[in-house]
Design a binder for these strands. Sequence first.
RNA 1: UGGGAUGUAGUGUAACGGUAGCACCACAGAUUCUGAUUCUGUUUGUCUGGGUUCGAAUCCUAGCAUCCCAACCA
Length: 552
Amino acid sequence: MSEEKSLNFLEEIVEADLAAGKYSSIVTRFPPEPNGYLHIGHSKSICLNFGLAKKYGGKTNLRFDDTNPVTEDTEYVESIKDDIRWLGFNWAEELYASDYFDKLYEYAVTLIRKGLAYVDDSTSEEIATLKGTPTEPGKDSVYRSRSVEENLQLFSDMKAGKYKDGEKVLRAKIDMAHTNMLMRDPIIYRIKHAHHHRTGDKWCVYPMYDFAHGQSDSIENITHSICTLEFIPHRELYDWLIEKLEIFPSHQYEFARLNMTYTVMSKRKLLQLVNEGFVNGWDDPRMPTISGFRRKGYTAESIRTFCDKIGVAKRENFIDLSLLEFCLREHLNKIAKRVMAVLDPVKLVITNYEDGKTEMLNSENGPDESMGTRTIPFSKELWIEREDFMEVPAKKWFRLAPGAMVRLKSAYIIKCDAFIKDVNGNITELHCSYIPESKSSNDTSGISVKGTIHWVNIATALEAEVRMYDRLFKVENPASEEGDFKDFINPHSLEIIQKAYLEPSLATAAIEDRYQFIRKGYFCLDKDSTANQLVFNRTVTLKDTWSKEANK
RNA sequence: UGGGAUGUAGUGUAACGGUAGCACCACAGAUUCUGAUUCUGUUUGUCUGGGUUCGAAUCCUAGCAUCCCAACCA
């Protein structure tokens, strides 16, 4: 390759560190808190952390940041592991911040011994008030000058369960006038009489994020601890604790998180959508969760490609959903089997075709010849798509219309001779005549038509439920709109087609299979399918230049 | 109004003192038994003002804009 892809700023840092001999190999980590499902934004972080280690010959740990027992749950631990594996990554070790609770407690004692931490009896309101504001310095707590011995005793009593939640906290003693709010004696331990998903009831004091994350990094010898931009102010505290504790110096680097159009990315908002029933669970195909995308039919490869294309930098970004969809279609176009399905049926009768006759026609399974062909039944009565007929054709229309000719995919050219309407004016039946010499792959008719439409043989059609998913929100950035973001949910984000007709080959569809329903989009079998009820999800539509033309 | 981070086409992302490039989107055309795919082409950009330099997106300087920080969340 003459043109080398340029490095992102983290790759540059890693290469410089390696070149300078700072490390012989790198260690990264992916540190989710098990209090929700992973979303597409996390996949950026996953691809980055695992990708860096892979590229530079290092390793990546999966470490659950489980320091807040009240919001965490093993259900989330399992889903997170499933999602990472599905994305195609393997962690070196599965670890938990809670594995280090004993060590972390010792670190806190060390800090107290050095006179760098103290127990504060103030209420949370008092602590907040004394903290000052970004423009005014804070004031020392009256408990700030307690002796080392007293602090040791008090912290030990906290651990022993002598106090109630919120009665006391342990704070680092730094500087109440610091310009960085996080350095104004941050709380590093709090009391929570809560059951922890792994340590059970062993502890009633739990370390705060700042006193767990960096220390866990250090314990694991993480060389490059990569997090998102909002943690920039935390880096000063991260470094301070490592220095005072005299432990392995991990370094924190920050990149801009992924934001994407037509969705929300905060766990709090996603949790609301789930809890308040706006979607059917974390893996609802409308959710931007990894499990949601998976269920909708996205491939892991397309998500990895997307993460590669969006790049890594430090400026806020807002990625077009269309880029993700582009990556998806690019992959699906290569692998999806082409089949025919009619979603909004209207009956078509070929008046000059022999009654009771059925032909088996060959049709290609995909653009690549290696995908082979299959046979599909064809006879006198077919379903076609209602929108493929126009009584009064629009400009540039080249599908069916009175007197117009069109090809039935892999079959014959037909001409529309008549149509029947019901009392409400809805078309109920189309009458066409076919041209016997125009059979696909053996066309001697000499007729060429502009349009080709798909169809399904009525007698052998399979019935299925098809879930047509669209974007969850009707505005690009629901989080930035005035009012509740839920007011901007797209009312048509899910439209269920109770009875669609499919060609018989779909009877053997499996969950992992990807299909293109010709001219309609990419679809996959949903896990709700049963032996007598097929359920398909629309993964994504095909690009549709006709609808643009029609709207002109 | 304290501190920190960031400003390159509509959206992302390169260019590391020497021709502002790539992708998505949009638009136009060709091909097509999927109005898909594929192929061709087009529009649009260095936050602003000064300065240094033969030459500045890049260096200096003064502004401006956006985001983050005052949970016993992470």
